[in-house]
Design a protein around this nucleic acid. Sequence first.
DNA 1: GGTAAAGCGGAAGATTTCGTCCGCTTTAAC
DNA 2: GTTAAAGCGGACGAAATCTTCCGCTTTACC
Lengths: 233, 233
Amino acid sequence: MTEGGRGRRPRRDAEANRERLLAAAVTVMLREGRDVPLATIAAEAGVGIGTLYRRYADRQALMHDLEHRAYDLLVGILAEIDGTGGTGLDSVGEYLARCFAVGDQLVLPLHGAPPLMTPEAVRARATIDRRLNDHLDRGRADGSIRADVNATDVIAFAALITQPLSYGPDWPRMVRRQIALFLNSLASDGAVPGPPIRQDDIEGASPATPPLMDKVPGCGWQSRARRGSSGAM
Amino acid sequence: MTEGGRGRRPRRDAEANRERLLAAAVTVMLREGRDVPLATIAAEAGVGIGTLYRRYADRQALMHDLEHRAYDLLVGILAEIDGTGGTGLDSVGEYLARCFAVGDQLVLPLHGAPPLMTPEAVRARATIDRRLNDHLDRGRADGSIRADVNATDVIAFAALITQPLSYGPDWPRMVRRQIALFLNSLASDGAVPGPPIRQDDIEGASPATPPLMDKVPGCGWQSRARRGSSGAM
DNA sequence: GGTAAAGCGGAAGATTTCGTCCGCTTTAAC
DNA sequence: GTTAAAGCGGACGAAATCTTCCGCTTTACC
């Protein structure tokens, strides 16, 4: 921002600890669920609880940082795929497969809470939408993808398959089948009812009575403290 | 069980309170997330915290009862559909639409924790699998459904779309599109890679490193107390 | 090396939630 | 109406988690 070149350079260990905290958060939450005590995360990272609180004001701040990292991951995947050849459908399939592969990393911050609205997050989502639409356009041009689906449909499907479900050891195979069925649909020519939904429809809209888990900013996502502090807000 | 006809009949208000507790649990969890204090649920139900604890030993017991109720709901939906006419594909579509419609009720107990293994739960899942396969068979006979998909594929998809996501007010429309795309695939004749997965594969398997959220019996699902009591188990 | 600022760690107090306990109320049976 | 058992409610002690605070350590710069 307006940091200028004035102050002293930040300490190297500080940045390292930040990385370690994020990685530890994923590891521990994968193991014990999203509600692990922050102390457990700090311990996994090998730092004191004070260090965690220095970096992140509360649980929510940590989750937000994880969400940013998740978007980086997705944008990175799309960048890699851009280089690959194949039809538009191939690219979409590759994207979905890779999303699922890194799902554990995404699912923690990305699901269960309303999308983050920071400039970076909004920009990342726009980028993902644009790149996916490019692939879809290419697919329509090369005849591998039907006309009436768009990036939002792909993103919605990706959101579904990257969620944490516990259906046992066969789950990955089951999801692969779901992906195959989805790609099948992209290639077929049946009609999808209703108008396509564009990213702007979602991005602009108010959170409006989401189905679950986000009264104010989050549920399990925000610190359990100060739950009832502001009443009806 | 071996209750016999011996003892006094249970009080009517006791059963009423039980219903009220289950309904309140859904309401409140929908509003504040799965981790609401049990006291909040009791308050919503209009009973004392003591009454809740009389009925349910801990949070997990309550969740299990909710899960049973969720299975009842699904079996009920299938029973209703059996009467309906239409192709096999129509029936599957109707099932998915109704699953999504009652998704809020299902999603609380059914997702995020490994499937319940009580006799009733196992039987309910078997019933659901059987009924869905019947519809699929009928669909294959009437030509509306391809050969290489089975009930497990439908159940997996249903599990995906009934999850709690917060993608704003357009989410229902987006899911309807996903359902349409899925039905499209059922009707098309592309090949799904890999062998179909049968219900037995899942039911019999050990929980085996599920992707998230179930170290021992649950995470947010079990009481937060006694978390670290038994060490490595 | 010396110095000052930044970062670190963990103990301690505050807060929230759990889960029990026991006296009071309601119900079913007579 | 009476009685005894079952059910109810909420205060209370225990336990877990959050969050702050401050003395000690490490780093960047000279």
